[in-house]
Write a protein that binds this DNA or RNA. Structure first.
Length: 415
RNA sequence: GGAGAGUUGGCUGAGUGGUCGAAAGCGCCUCCCUGCUAAGGAGGUAACUGGGUAACUGGUUCGAGGGUUCGAAUCCCUCACUCUCCGCCA
């Protein structure tokens, strides 16, 4: 959520910055709503002040035993006027708030200008592509079974068998341990979240169709970003504890509405997948440095797994709703002969903190923290990258040395 | 599922329908004392938001939403959540 005051004061600048990411703010409706708001609010507050004074006079008169009839008439009139104006004000405030909840974050100055994903900028490529494999993960192993998962649940689910469940656990443990080494505190969190939490991190109200709804007020989490960030919702955090770094492994649930026909094969796009999430709360002045730090924490996983990848910076037009700046990490997928997203690391500046009301106190007042998060990493995609990049072409998948102590072997032999 | 208790500032916790945004304590800030630290003393310290160039000055908020009333933290109703006990259960 943007700062309303800031939007009012710097409307033209903000409008311009938002249009760089493809969002056109409705200038007429915003300005006319805010104008009405101002008039009504002043009226209502004046009437409230009147009522306060009159009521206390009423009390005094009554206490001294004098007649209150005349005063009561005046009060009744005031109250009637107040009711009328207040109703109108409330409805305008609601509209204004809905309009505000709908506006995406302002891109950081440093974000390259662009229209869509084609204008994203490759920052750096890491590792060398050595795999000559062209088979995809379903062709390499039979232990990823999407047919049987379809029987249990439907499309976009999978069952892992053989050595793969263990390999997935190994990846999870390895990633969490690595995050902890990098100073993140591990949490176990609910896999469902209420509407307030999802509004806090920006999934609601705009993107409800992307979520699985469990009941009236509970949704399955699409990422651990939701519970981890909402640990701090409506809290003041200690200034001297910043940056706060937290992590969690959770399954993630996404309805993938709107992606029909896209990535239908294999593990690449599932309704349910495992992910390790990294979240930082920082002071505003440090948030870009912290984003770099978080990005390097995520990259380190792929370095250690010895998988080739590239880091790209999203252009203004491809930024997510809540993000001011985003780097995607893309891992090499031999079967697709291209890089695919495996992590998205973003600085949300105060956008989420404002929605979730996460602040810290200093001598000169209260400030919203900045929030930064990213995957460290998406486990399902990591699993298939590992399988496809490390397949020797006949019957062996090599396990990188960093996983050996978790997996207990340096290879998987395919039956 | 049954029975009961509760939800008040950064935290703990008082609170009589008007003088309550709210006692007290903790914490925090400023100052005094002190060679330093600790202790002690004085004062200050809720959030959100409007108007105003400013000085300043309004309003809202005691879990949420309704209601009663001239006036609600306080009375009534509904809901959410938390806790305790009993039952059931991984």
């Amino acid at each position: 959520m943007l700062d309303l005051k800031n939007l009012r004061d710097n409307f033209d600048d903000i409008k311009k910055m938002l249009s760089s990411r493809g969002y056109n703010i409705d200038e007429d409706s915003f300005k006319s709503l805010d104008k009405k708001r101002k008039v009504l609010q002043v009226t209502v507050e004046d009437l409230q002040a009147d009522r306060k004074k009159l009521s206390s006079e009423f009390g005094k008169l009554k206490a001294s035993g004098e007649s209150v009839d005349e005063l009561k008439t005046i009060i009744d009139e005031t109250n009637t006027k107040l009711d009328e104006n207040d109703k109108e004000l409330q409805s305008i405030l609601k509209d204004l708030n809905n309009l505000l909840l709908d506006i995406p974050n302002i891109p950081d100055q440093s974000v390259p200008n662009g229209r869509d994903e084609n204008d994203n900028v490759v920052i750096k490529k890491y590792g060398s592509i050595t795999s000559k494999n062209t088979l995809d993960h379903l062709e390499i192993t039979n232990d990823i079974d999407t047919d049987i998962a379809a029987k249990i649940a439907g499309s976009r689910f999978s069952v892992l068998k053989g050595e793969l469940p263990k390999l997935q656990r190994a990846l999870i443990s390895f990633m969490i341990d690595n995050a902890v080494k990098n100073g993140y505190e591990e949490y176990y969190v609910p896999f469902m979240a209420n509407a307030d939490s999802l509004i806090g991190t920006g999934q609601l109200p705009k993107f409800e169709e992307d979520l699985f709804k469990a009941n009236e007020n509970l949704y399955l989490i699409p990422t651990a970003e939701v519970p981890l960030t909402n640990l701090f919702r409506d809290e003041f955090v200690n200034e001297n504890e910043l940056p706060i770094k937290v992590t969690s492994h959770t399954p993630c649930f996404r309805s993938e509405a709107g992606s029909y026909g896209k990535d239908t094969r294999g593990l690449i796009r599932q309704h349910q997948f495992e992910k390790i999430e990294l979240v930082q709360l920082t002071k505003p002045e440090n948030s870009m440095t912290c984003l770099d730090n978080l990005l390097s924490n995520a990259c380190q996983i792929l370095d250690l797994l010895e998988l080739p990848y590239q880091v790209i910076e999203l252009c203004t037009g491809d930024l997510g709703f809540s993000s001011a700046k985003t780097f995607d990490i893309e891992v090499w997928m031999p079967s697709q002969n291209k890089y695919r997203e495996i992590s998205s690391c973003s600085n949300f500046t105060d956008f989420q903190a404002r929605r979730a009301n996460i602040k810290y106190k200093t001598k000169d007042g209260n400030h919203f923290v900045h929030t930064i998060n990213g995957s460290g990493l998406a486990v399902g995609r990591c699993l298939i990258a590992l399988i496809e990049n490390n397949y020797d072409g006949s019957d062996i998948i090599k396990i990188p040395s960093c996983l050996e102590k978790y997996f207990g072997s340096d290879q998987i032999k395919i039956n």
